[in-house]
Write a protein that binds this DNA or RNA. Structure first.
Lengths: 190, 190
DNA sequence: CGATTCTTTGAAAACAGTCAATCTGTGTGG
DNA sequence: CCACACAGATTGACTGTTTTCAAAGAATCG
């Protein structure tokens, strides 16, 4: 899974594959288990080979705010904590039983140095993430809830199918009740 | 201005400074003039040496949505258009008379290849931008308007002083009337 | 089947948006 | 120097939307 992803983004020799792989750890998480907990320091890069994860925070009153999802072939983690070395403000946990390839920060950087294609991939990913964030910010201030929801299910149909409505609502910045009502209006319109 | 910024982020010889500078163009914009217009393709990197700019879109009904501000020592532009080669969905214009150092995409990439420190800077900038976006997204779904406004003026005091309230309101995703009322409540509390 | 989790629904309250009018400050031209 | 025009900010009344709280209905899992 991880290998074919790498092959799709760069050309690697067998030895390089081996070497990269030797720097990876595989983590298996059952539903609801944590990959990262609020307050811990995140020091890795994580590639999802199976399952579905979410990144979220919890405020004082216990309300959860979903920042992002990640599924097969997505990278996840907390770049803020990774870069600053500060404790993370987020939790990451598994929505489904999942499998994650973890590469420690230092090892990741060494791979980047040794394999230019890998480095380009890393830069490309963050670039794309940033652009996706910009679009999301733009939508959050310029679109109606209905439009945001439509945009979400079109952009991420798998998330819409696999994640509970309550988490999608949180991702969109609304309550689950409001999402439920918006969905009904949606159904009527079609 | 641009030179001292570069010096603060990497060590360069005089010749390197010269060379980088020879790949730059300086643009002077008067208030309200465009750096980029919706529909045009953005192909550069732009560093603000003086003034204040905003990135925003306009919808069919003429409403403006401010995505970001940029002032002295900030980079601006549209990474989405830059990366995809597609027409931009944004406008960038000057809120104050401004001065911008523009480097074309190709030239920028050459500089990145030749000067590792410059390349690191470029990666660092996008990383920071991404993290800032994540924080903004997090705030947009988890904070009250009052908290978002407080956070904005603390994080970007200069923007709060130099940009009109209506643009700040747009940036925060609310109307200028609502921002006005929130500010009054703010004033009362202190 | 029972228990838990997730979703839906209803009614009331809180909140932000809209529209229109007023107010404030700035800068220009007479 | 004043008067006026203009852009930006505020206020009020009203409308529309979202949240909140509580309860009931599905769906899922052991």
């Amino acid at each position: 899974m991880f290998k074919s992803y790498l092959d799709s983004r760069m050309s690697l020799t067998g030895a390089q594959h081996e070497w990269i792989w030797s720097n990876c750890t595989v983590k298996r998480l059952r539903k609801k288990q944590y990959l990262l907990q609020q307050g811990d320091i995140w020091k890795s890069h994580a590639f999802v080979t199976k399952g579905l994860l979410r990144t979220y925070s919890i405020d004082k009153s216990g309300i959860e705010y979903v920042i992002s999802f990640a599924m097969e072939n997505w990278w996840t983690g907390d770049r803020e904590s990774l870069m600053s070395g500060e404790p993370s403000r987020f939790n990451i946990d598994a929505i489904e039983d999942s499998e994650i390839v973890v590469i420690e920060k230092e090892k990741f950087e060494i791979i980047c140095k040794e394999i230019p294609g890998f480095n380009e991939m890393a830069n490309d990913i963050i670039q794309r993430n940033f652009i996706a964030s910009q679009i999301r910010i733009h939508e959050s201030i310029s679109s109606s809830i209905y439009e945001k929801y439509q945009s979400f299910i079109q952009r991420y149909p798998s998330f819409a199918l696999r994640a509970p409505q309550s988490m999608i609502a949180s991702y969109l910045g609304i309550t689950r009740e409001t999402l439920s009502r918006v969905r009904h209006r949606t159904a009527k319109k079609s």
